[in-house]
Each structure stands twice: as C-alpha cells, then as structure tokens.
C-alpha cells in the first residue's frame, strides 16, 4: 500500500512539473519577442556580391574567415566554433569523458577485486 501511494504521488508531481513546463513554453511562445527571425534580413547587405568575390575558389571560405575575425578575432575558425559559438557542446563532451572515466574506474575496480577474491578461493 505504501509503495502504491508513493508511486501515485510521484506521478502527480511529474505531471505537475510537465504541466508547468508546457505552460511556460506556451507563455514564452506567445509573449516573448523573437530573438532572431530571418525574415527581415537582406542577404545582399550581409554579403555584398559586388564587393566580395563569391565565384572564386576561396569565395565563401574567405567570407566566413573574415566574418569570424570580426566576430571572435580568432584565426582558426574551427577553434572559435568549438570554444566560442558552441561552448556548451565542448563542456558536455568533456563531462562525457569525466563520466566515462568514473564509470570505467568503478567497473574495472569491482571486476579486479572479484577476480582477486576468486583466486583466493581457488587457492584455499
């Protein structure tokens, strides 16, 4: 009986959280102004085809490098993307490594200890 009531309580809590999250989502969608809506952007203003050479071999790449230098002032585009524009991604990757090492440490330590115990039993 106790476990059943606990489960029902937990279900109610989860449903309440879900409802609050959905309400927040709908509220944000209706009331908050959009941060970026591509409708009013004129691509010819961002990248002027008369000024910048789009037909050359390095056309688009040169524009990307120039825009990145203006934005982040890093010579390596990949580094600036990995550490600046997508910093959360790198953070998550490094924490994946941390978690993987912790998990393998636990598994290997347990298996090592169990192997030692089995050998002791065999010797006895």
């Amino acid at each position: 009986m106790k476990t059943k009531t606990r489960r029902i309580l937990a279900l109610i809590c989860v449903l309440m959280l879900l409802a609050a999250g959905l309400y927040a989502l709908v509220w944000a969608k209706i009331n908050l102004p959009p941060t970026y809506d591509g409708s009013k952007v004129n691509m010819n203003e961002v990248v002027d085809p008369n000024v910048e050479d789009l037909n050359g071999a390095d056309g688009a790449a040169a524009i990307i490098v120039q825009k990145n230098l203006d934005e982040a002032y890093a010579a390596n585009d990949v580094a600036s993307v990995v550490f600046d524009f997508r910093g959360y991604d790198t953070l998550g990757e490094s924490f994946i490594l941390l978690t993987a090492i912790a998990g393998s440490f636990v598994i290997l330590a347990i298996s090592h200890r169990e192997a030692g115990k089995e050998e002791e039993k065999d010797e006895v």
């Binding site: 982040a72 002032y73 890093a74 010579a75 580094a79 600036s80 550490f83 600046d84």
Partner: peptide, 18 residues
C-alpha cells in the same frame, strides 16, 4: 570570447579566451 584584442591575428594568444 572576451579580451580578444591582445595580439596580431595568427599569433599564439590572439584567440583571447578561446
């Protein structure tokens, strides 16, 4: 990327915080 104007482009510490 903060404090990024600290060297010529392509230098070792030109990336700033990165």
């Amino acid at each position: 990327n903060i404090f990024y104007n600290i060297g010529p482009v392509g230098d070792l510490i030109s990336g700033g915080t990165i």
